[in-house]
C-alpha cells in the first residue's frame, strides 16, 4: 500500500549511487535495450528503495564536531552549513577532516502527505 500511496524525495538521485544508476540507464537507452518510460519507473523505485534502505538497514554511525556557520529552515527543509568539521567514525580512532559540510535534511513525510 505504501508503495502506491506514498511519494518519495528525489534527492538521492544526486548521490554517487544515484548518478551511477542514471548513467547506466542512459547507456541502456542509447543501446535501445530499454525505453525511457522504464528508466523513469526504475528511478522511482530507486527513490523508494534508497529511502527505505537508508532508514532501515544502515546501522553504522559517526559523530562530528564543527562550527555552525549558517542554518535555515525553508519549505520544510533544514539546511546547515558547518565549517572545520571533524568526523569520527564508529569503531575507528581515525578522524576525517573537512573544511565545509552542507547538511540538508527533509521531513521523512513529504509536504502534502497526509501525516
Amino acid at each position: 500500500m505504501a508503495a502506491t500511496g506514498q511519494s518519495f524525495y528525489e534527492l538521492y538521485r544526486r548521490s554517487s549511487i544515484g548518478m551511477a544508476l542514471t548513467d547506466t540507464l542512459d547507456d541502456l537507452i542509447s543501446e535501445r535495450r530499454i525505453e525511457p518510460q522504464l528508466a523513469m519507473k526504475i528511478l522511482a523505485n530507486f527513490d523508494r528503495s534508497i529511502t527505505e534502505v537508508l532508514a532501515e538497514k544502515v546501522k553504522a554511525r559517526l559523530t562530528f564536531k564543527g562550527h555552525l556557520d549558517t542554518y535555515r529552515f525553508c519549505d520544510e527543509v533544514w539546511t546547515f552549513l558547518i565549517k572545520d568539521v571533524t568526523f569520527k567514525m564508529e569503531n575507528s580512532s581515525q578522524t576525517v577532516q573537512a573544511d565545509k559540510v552542507k547538511i540538508v535534511s527533509c521531513n521523512s513525510k513529504r509536504p502534502g502527505d497526509p501525516q
Partner: peptide
C-alpha cells in the same frame, strides 16, 4: 544533443 529519450529525469 542526446535527444528526447534522455529527458526522463530532471
Amino acid at each position: 544533443c542526446r535527444g528526447t529519450n534522455f529527458a526522463y529525469v530532471s
